[in-house]
Design a protein around this nucleic acid. Structure first.
Lengths: 137, 137
DNA sequence: GCTAATCCCTCTAGCCACTATAGGTTCAAG
DNA sequence: CTTGAACCTATAGTGGCTAGAGGGATTAGC
């Protein structure tokens, strides 16, 4: 039997976050001690580690809920889980793409600024005048 | 004189967002018509375009506040503005870096899954077992 | 001058995944 | 039995908006 603090130390998930996951229905409501404190078993530890891992990989809570539901049906085809992961990968790639465009534009703006005063600062001028942009955004 | 809707159409910033920017102190409280509706001048339009542009580039609201303040001191050295832009560029690069690691890990997980049932689905297994990860995260 | 359509007003609440705080209770070690 | 750490619930805050309710203002056409 683990206390919520034990679980937190073992998984790296903060105590309030564990309670939050319970609220969100990611982990079941734990058993309670006589004094109303949460008491967890090994299976709860494993599930929380699963959640932590999925969050680290950027899956959002509804996706994790779905993945957990799927993992309870070992016989089912795994196309559902694959689909969730692939969708997430696409989303990550889109974010990267957007950030790379941003990076380029910012690089250009920063490197063009050799001004000494705000008056001729390229950073400020570029923000004031959209015509100075290379890409659309 | 522009109404808030005119401003919105001309800058692409939605009406409630303009009011929100006013609340946040990014644009000054506009003059009002007799019937208490906001009335803007050309200078407000320009400032809002500046804000829109900065937001598109991912600057957060405190940074934009600082950039606006700086732009009002044309004689001042522009190192402050450069600094803000460089800091933001670094932050963007860090985000890209983190997302690229995520992308790699997800790619690996997705591509390893040739299972047909959840039981041997690599996606699920990888999430359950941190030992299957390449990188730390 | 009237009406209808469209715009505008304020205020409040919701989004996401937490995090922080307050005020109180329980547990475990000594 | 006492102390101090850990635990409990409930509420509010984060950022940058967005949505909705319930009303008032403006404007174009008749």
């Amino acid at each position: 039997m683990y206390s919520i603090g034990d679980l937190s130390r073992r998984t790296g998930v903060k105590v309030p976050t564990i309670r939050y996951y319970e609220q969100m229905g990611l982990i079941r409501a734990a058993q309670r001690s006589e004094g109303n404190q949460r008491r967890y078993e090994r299976s709860d530890l494993e599930r929380l580690a699963f959640i932590r891992h999925a969050r680290d990989l950027g899956f959002d809570i509804p996706a994790i809920r779905d993945l957990i539901a799927l993992s309870h049906h070992p016989e089912a085809p795994c196309s559902g889980a694959d689909r969730i992961a692939e969708d997430h990968l696409s989303a990550v790639r889109e974010k990267i793409e957007r950030l790379r465009k941003l990076e380029q534009e910012l690089e250009r703006i920063v490197s063009h600024c050799s001004g000494h005063s705000v008056e001729d600062c390229y950073v400020i001028r570029a923000l004031s005048d959209h015509g100075l942009c290379e890409a659309e955004h």
